[in-house]
Amino acid sequence: MSATTGTGRQFGEGPLSRVASFVYTLLVVELLLVATMLPGLAVLIVLDRDASNVPLAAACALPFGPALSAALYALHHRRQDLTELAPAPAFWRGYRANAVGVLKIWAPWLAFVTVVGVNLTHLSVAGIPRWWAVLLVVVAVVATLCAVNALVITSLFTFRAVDVARLACYFLVRTPSVALGNAGLLAVAATVTVLSSEAVLALAGSLLALALLRTSQPMTTLVREQFTA
């Protein structure tokens, strides 16, 4: 009787408990994600979708990078045991640890896409030929996919900024399935934003972060095996 009891399932280890812990973690991370994005999100929601507001929209998006990074960190370190849940401390730990490193990637990327966006919305004024506009879009997409790789790497590992940039570019070629999956996520995010609003996308932020972790798993596995002790 005692042996059976000792090897029996403990509280918090069953399938229902795992589902409950998963949902709870997603909800807590979502609330914290929205809270840390709120300073920029509140302005972005009321901002007119006009070409002249592209720089202001980019400035509003500045808090999104550290917030998404913290969500990635918290979800990556989530526990399945219902008795050991701590998503909020994990979120804040990831936010404090990665905010500076993420901004070193996020801010230059925002500045770059802002320049591209302004040029694309003022083609006739800038005198840019159509073929150059297409090239700008291609470069912006590649830069965005590299920035996503860098965001994931910075969120889960500790490297110098220059090494993060190298790894992000390297894995863009080394793991094409990751680039394809992330491109699909970006397309979905852009579609949701265009058809609804930034607020709707923000309310699905934890699900987006979870999907990003899943699509980036081949890359993070290789980083852990080949570039960490």
Rank of each mutant, 00 (worst) to 15 (best):
A179M: 02
C60T: 02
L167W: 02
S197I: 13
V162Q: 15
R160F: 11
N53R: 14
P108W: 03
G181V: 05
N119I: 12
K104L: 14
V125I: 14
V28Y: 00
P176F: 05
A209Q: 00
A147Q: 12
A147Y: 09
I45D: 14
F227M: 10
G94K: 01
L82H: 10
P108I: 09
A161I: 13
S52H: 03
A61V: 05
G181M: 05
S17G: 14
Y170T: 11
R224W: 06
P39I: 11
E225I: 08
S52W: 00
P87D: 09
A209C: 07
N98H: 15
R93I: 00
T158H: 14
R93P: 01
G65Y: 09
L26Y: 00
P15Y: 05
L222H: 06
L120D: 08
L203E: 10
L103A: 03
S52Y: 01
S155W: 03
L31E: 01
L47T: 15
A59G: 13
P89M: 10
M1A: 15
G181C: 04
G205K: 03
A140L: 07
L75G: 01
V188L: 15
E84Q: 14
A183H: 07
V162D: 15
V34K: 01
T221K: 04
L172C: 10
V148H: 06
S21M: 03
A58T: 12
P15Q: 04
L136P: 10
T215N: 01
R96L: 08
W131E: 09
R9V: 10
L110V: 07
C60F: 03
A67Q: 01
L186K: 00
A140T: 13
W92V: 03
A202I: 03
V223R: 02
T4D: 15
P176Q: 05
D50N: 14
R78F: 00
F91G: 05
G12V: 09
L123T: 13
V142S: 06
L103N: 07
A35R: 00
S2F: 06
A88F: 04
A229M: 08
L62I: 15
A187C: 05
R224F: 12
L156N: 09
V139N: 08
V200C: 07
I128E: 01
T4G: 15
H122T: 14
A209N: 03
T5M: 14
T83R: 15
T5C: 12
A35F: 10
G14P: 04
P15R: 00
